[in-house]
């Protein structure tokens, strides 16, 4: 190779280590796709569409609908909540306060999901702290059923996914000069108008990144529904695990996985079209 060619290609060598990892994931994904067309006990030799046809069964359909519903609700809540938090983080000037906010936000990422789930169990139970506060202050007469319901699962999913949203959004917000907001205010825009007309459009790259991360994360939620659902909240990842583990039906699990991934991509694609349409008034 000529020296020039070597120089041109040199940067791509830096991709090599990550590329190896990516390759491993890609290969195993491809294997999963192949598996989905196989038969139980004859996984690599057979070819069948039975696993895909089985997806029309009630338990699977319910699982997909529930998974998507939980993910959509949780993602929407996360994005809504993360905007004021990100704004606060981006605009606060005191370095101490900034670090404190960042620490609180990132906390869920430091703690094992399993341990967090046990924490939620004690928080959300009928005699847990949340209910004690609500009943004790008189807001409700009887403790709310939060644990082992979809509501409880969604609450925990939102808390866990929040840092994934706050980081890219506050990063995008930091790149918006304060003078833009000040200019809009001086031109007559009240605070909310400034946010809607100037901040949100300019933060769009960050919002999009947050959406991708959070939606992927929520659709693949496994531990939280497993521990906090009490057996009543069954998501597709849990069904996959059931097929892969106790039921030893790898091809069925693989088919579920493939469809889940395709659905995720579809959801994100639809949202992407919405985004590119723009909100120019």
């Amino acid at each position: 190779m000529t020296p020039q060619a070597r120089k041109r290609n040199a940067p791509y060598l830096l991709l090599a280590p990550a590329g190896v990892l990516f390759l491993a994931i890609a290969v195993s994904a491809l294997m999963m796709v192949r598996l989905s067309f196989g038969e139980k006990t004859l996984e690599w030799e057979s070819w069948t569409l039975a696993n895909y046809r089985a997806l029309s069964e009630g338990v699977f359909v319910t699982g997909f609908i529930r998974t998507l519903r939980l993910a959509v609700i949780a993602t929407a809540l996360v994005l809504l909540l993360s905007l004021p938090v990100s704004l606060l983080y981006a605009r606060v000037t005191s370095r101490m306060v900034k670090r404190l906010i960042l620490f609180i936000i990132l906390l869920p990422l430091f703690i094992n999901q399993l341990l967090q789930s046990y924490g939620w169990i004690s928080l959300l139970g009928p005699t847990g702290i949340v209910n004690n506060l609500l009943v004790g202050s008189g807001i409700v007469a009887r403790p709310l059923r939060l644990l082992y319901t979809e509501t409880g699962v969604i609450i925990a999913m939102v808390q866990l996914a929040l840092p994934l949203a706050v980081l890219p959004i506050s990063s995008a917000l930091r790149n918006i000069p304060a003078s833009y907001e000040e200019a809009a205010a001086i031109l007559g825009a009240p605070r909310l108008r400034v946010l809607w007309e100037i901040v949100v459009p300019l933060a769009r790259p960050g919002l999009w990144a947050a959406f991708l991360l959070v939606s992927s994360f929520n659709i693949s939620a496994f531990v939280l529904p497993l521990l906090l659902g009490g057996g009543r909240v069954t998501t597709v990842p849990m069904l996959i695990r059931e097929q892969m583990g106790p039921l030893l039906n790898w091809p069925q699990g693989a088919a579920l996985a493939v469809v889940l991934v395709l659905l995720t991509l579809l959801v994100q694609r639809i949202a992407g079209l919405q985004r590119r349409g723009g909100t120019r008034t």
Binding site: P177, S179, Y180, E182, A185, L202
Partner: peptide
Amino acid sequence: LPAHRRNVGLVFQDLAIFPH
């Protein structure tokens, strides 16, 4: 009065033109 109710104009040093 808050800034958006003052009817004052301000041309910023960095111009603050909305890029979008």
